[in-house]
């Protein structure tokens, strides 16, 4: 298994084309980390939703990928940052089916389900930061270490 690079990978999100770029970058990172193909797809779908959320609400922002470690666990962290209007009621925004625009209202809550961890910070007038992580499952690593 290759050792995760220390550097972060950033993808600017300014138009819908960038959603595809962010997704592909995320897919590459997730595969490099050793996530299963099913999980890679889940991560890519989650990235798609949060990148879209940036465009819908802040017009522009960035998605940042990095490898993280907690104890013996390794994971992929995906952060979506924007300097948009921010979210006044995070609880409401995270409600499934709630949408401020013509969307399905599944974006943020949907992404939360696809990932292992999901955090959201937002300040009105300042912007929103969504941080989510997917951990490499213990089973996989146990399998790799089995005799």
């Amino acid at each position: 298994m290759q050792s995760p690079p220390n550097s972060e990978v950033r993808v600017e999100v300014r138009s819908t084309i960038d959603i595809v770029t962010a997704r592909q970058q995320g897919r590459e990172q997730a595969m490099a980390l050793g996530l299963s193909s099913a999980e890679v797809t889940l991560v890519a779908a989650a990235i798609s939703e949060i990148a879209r959320n940036i465009l819908d609400h802040a017009k522009r922002g960035e998605v940042v990928f990095s490898f993280v470690q907690r104890g013996s666990q390794r994971g992929l962290q995906v952060a979506a940052n924007d300097q948009g209007p921010g979210i006044a009621d995070i609880g409401l925004a995270m409600q499934y089916g709630y949408s401020t625009r013509r969307g399905l209202g599944v974006g943020l809550p949907g992404a939360k389900w696809l990932m292992d961890e999901f955090e959201i910070e937002s300040a009105v007038g300042k912007g929103t930061k969504v941080t989510m992580r997917k951990w490499v499952k213990d089973e996989n690593s146990q399998l790799n270490h089995s005799r």
Partner: peptide
């Protein structure tokens, strides 16, 4: 595809 269908239903789509 199976993975895509799986992600879709996880998203509630």
């Amino acid at each position: 595809q199976p993975e895509v269908a799986f992600a879709m239903v996880q998203l509630g789509l």
